[in-house]
Design a protein around this nucleic acid. Structure first.
Length: 258
DNA sequence: ATGGCTGAGCTACTCAGA
């Protein structure tokens, strides 16, 4: 089973690139973040034409997440987190992998910058609730897959210049500790698990030739609960979509499990 | 390297992203 996570930075602005990509990569499930549209304006038909159903938790202008799938998804839930700001950031659903019922948790964690504002407090509070909910969920189902844009740089190796980000909402120690806390519940960061010393990124900003200079960061992740480690076949960051015209600033991360 | 680039909503410009 191929599951892909991608922050597309607007599903409508990116639809041509996305369709081209799914034709190339043929995922079973595509987890999208930052779709930046309300449900009623989502391009359902473009996905349908290619054999995919869309489960959308949209929002006007900002945020928004969706699960695109050509296999059965059960128990779609848009209330995983009670968000005081009414932001659409998590959608979950269940898939069957052999004898395992896996819960897919597609997340778009708040950015949190600038750090001297309520945005940063919102991120911290949000992560606290998220971790608490994951803990509860894990006590009921030991097969959890959390994927998406975490807006967290886990370690120094995960950014081109760590010094620039150690006082940033993506790299601050107390935020990285939240990531660590999540892993300590019983998860692995699958990219790092499979690539101990490799330095690859999933995001390059649009400014000043960041892509060309490889000034990037690894902030999109697949976290699998310990019970699913034996099912991992491969994990790959696919840089091709970031090199295209009109790209998202993020590139997809691809997981195969069996 | 704390600037500059992109998208949404809207139609001039702000907000948000990381």
């Amino acid at each position: 089973m191929k599951i892909i996570s991608w922050n597309v930075n607007s599903v409508r602005a990116r639809i041509t690139n996305i369709v081209e990509y799914i034709k190339d990569e043929n995922p079973d499930v595509l987890l999208l973040q930052e779709i930046k549209t309300q449900d009623e304006n989502f391009p359902y038909e473009e996905f349908k034409k290619n054999g995919y159903n869309s489960y959308v938790f949209g929002q006007k202008s900002y945020n928004g997440v969706a699960i695109i799938s050509k296999i059965d998804i059960e128990k779609i839930n848009k209330n995983f987190i009670k968000d005081e700001s009414k932001q659409s950031r998590v959608i979950t659903g269940e898939v069957q992998l052999k004898k395992k019922k896996i819960e897919l948790i597609n997340v778009y964690v708040p950015n949190g910058n600038p750090i001297d504002t309520d945005k940063y407090n919102y991120k911290k509070k949000w992560l606290k609730i998220f971790i608490s909910n994951i803990k509860k969920k894990l006590s009921k189902n030991s097969n959890l897959l959390i994927a998406g844009d975490f807006n967290i740089i886990p370690e120094d190796i995960d950014v081109y210049d760590f010094k620039r980000y150690e006082n940033d909402a993506l790299g601050k120690l107390e935020i990285r500790k939240k990531f660590r806390e999540l892993l300590n519940l019983g998860f692995h960061d699958i990219y790092r698990f499979k690539n101990i010393n490799k330095q690859e990124y999933t995001f390059w900003d649009y400014f000043a030739g960041s892509w060309q200079k490889n000034y990037g960061m690894r902030i999109d992740h697949f976290l699998l609960s310990n019970n699913l480690i034996e099912n991992i076949k491969s994990i790959n960051i696919n840089k091709k979509p970031r090199s295209k015209l009109k790209p998202s600033d993020h590139t997809p991360i691809e997981l195969e499990i069996n």
